[in-house]
Amino acid sequence: MEISGIISAIIIGIIIGVLGRLVVPGRQHIGVLLTIVVGIVAALIGAAIASGLGVADTKGIDWIEWLIQIGLAGVGIAALDRSRARR
């Protein structure tokens, strides 16, 4: 992976993390940095899932891939929020 790919993954991860945080109702007890990490991981896993389903490369905006990534980020944020709330 080139440096431009890493930078774009971080930027997309930030966007995915913020959108995933907005999907989860209520107040979350995780920090911004952890939200970004969850977003980056969700973006990478979501891209792999979309590629496996054959919906990653479409003409125009890849809406299905974005929805998969945002859904994964929402699940990751909710899971981390619940694990932190138990402590």
Rank of each mutant, 00 (worst) to 15 (best):
residue 6 I to C: 07
residue 48 A to N: 08
residue 21 R to P: 02
residue 26 G to H: 06
residue 61 I to D: 10
residue 50 A to Q: 05
residue 16 I to C: 10
residue 61 I to T: 14
residue 31 G to H: 03
residue 87 R to S: 14
residue 23 V to F: 09
residue 75 V to W: 14
residue 75 V to Y: 11
residue 67 L to V: 12
residue 46 G to F: 00
residue 30 I to S: 05
residue 80 L to W: 09
residue 17 G to Y: 00
residue 74 G to T: 08
residue 35 T to Q: 09
residue 46 G to V: 03
residue 68 I to D: 04
residue 69 Q to A: 11
residue 28 Q to M: 09
residue 44 L to G: 12
residue 16 I to Q: 06
residue 34 L to M: 12
residue 39 G to Y: 03
residue 17 G to T: 02
residue 71 G to R: 01
residue 69 Q to E: 08
residue 10 I to L: 15
residue 2 E to F: 07
residue 32 V to P: 00
residue 46 G to M: 05
residue 31 G to M: 04
residue 82 R to F: 09
residue 57 D to M: 10
residue 51 S to M: 09
residue 51 S to E: 13
residue 36 I to L: 07
residue 78 A to H: 07
residue 55 V to R: 06
residue 86 R to G: 03
residue 53 L to G: 06
residue 7 I to T: 15
residue 2 E to P: 09
residue 24 V to T: 10
residue 70 I to N: 04
residue 81 D to V: 04
residue 39 G to S: 03
residue 86 R to E: 12
residue 40 I to P: 00
residue 5 G to T: 12
residue 34 L to Y: 05
residue 29 H to G: 04
residue 47 A to G: 15
residue 38 V to L: 04
residue 83 S to M: 11
residue 8 S to V: 14
residue 48 A to F: 11
residue 58 T to W: 03
residue 45 I to Y: 01
residue 75 V to D: 02
residue 67 L to M: 14
residue 60 G to P: 06
residue 60 G to Q: 05
residue 55 V to N: 06
residue 66 W to D: 02
residue 31 G to C: 04
residue 62 D to Y: 05
residue 73 A to R: 03
residue 49 I to L: 10
residue 36 I to W: 00
residue 57 D to Y: 11
residue 3 I to M: 14
